[in-house]
Amino acid sequence: MAVNEDMDYPRLTPPDDRYPSAGSLFRTPHDITGEQFDLLAAARAEDSLSEEGRSDFDIIISSAPGRLEYADSFRQLRLHPMDERMEGLDSLIKTPQAVIILRRTLFTTLAAAAVVLAYFTLRPFAGQQTGIIKPEALPELTIVAEKGISPVVKPALKQKPIAAQPLTVSETTRKSESDVVLQATDDKITLMTTALQPAIPILASLTRSEELCPVNFREIPVAATYRIEENWIVKGIASLSGAAGKGNKPSGSYIIADACIKALNRVLGSEMELKRVISDTGNPVSVNFSSSLLSFSAPVKKTSP
């Protein structure tokens, strides 16, 4: 080792020393171990061998042909995806904001329209009760008096008859025998029915009460007179809903509309609400509908006395 003469920038100059047996360190492809050959074969199976690597591999194979099959087996070591799918992957899909707004607006509008339609269509029907029967829909009534038998006279109704009309057999109406009573006064007997509200009083006879005989009623079937039913679809739905519930009583429009809204809320995830305002006396006053886009209030019309 010598130091050059430039003292400002001194540098070491390498001596001419030599490794005495360098030749023993050299290797040929035949010296590759089994583990090294495995790595070489794996690289070959990956087509990742360099040009020199391929020539080395060829040299090895030429000396031991059986190793070629061994090396080729590495090509079979390929993993193929199994049929594995992630559950709930669809939940990661995002919906564009515009679509969300459009969908919410559309659904809410349709729901509100459906509610309004259902409410106003069902409201007239909700007032009808099963007990209300119009006189013209009932069959005619015939009174047959038998002589010699004392009349059975029921006490008069608490409710005062609205009007009395002269007895005309063909005009006499009733719903059932138990609904018909006789109201006796000094010299007048009034036949009336309790089923009809308001009652239709009938002036039975002007004869004296002791001369009366028991009255048997016999229904005379008449040709059915069909009325044109208005809103028959809605009434049918209401009747079916009532039949599905208790007592075959038709559901009210508010109940149906409220059920529709709750179902829509459940399906669409919206927050619509239908609320009935009830007065101090317990009568419904109005119905309020509210949603994120629409809200209104509709007064309740009384359709029953």
């Binding site: 583990e35 495995d38 790595l39 794996a42 690289a43 199976a45 990956e46 990742s48 087996s73 590495f74 070591l77």
Partner: peptide, 15 residues
């Protein structure tokens, strides 16, 4: 490369 080649050898040894 090293990890892949070693992995392949390990797979083969397993077989």
């Amino acid at each position: 490369k090293t990890y892949i080649f070693r992995g392949r050898v390990a797979l083969r040894n397993y077989l």
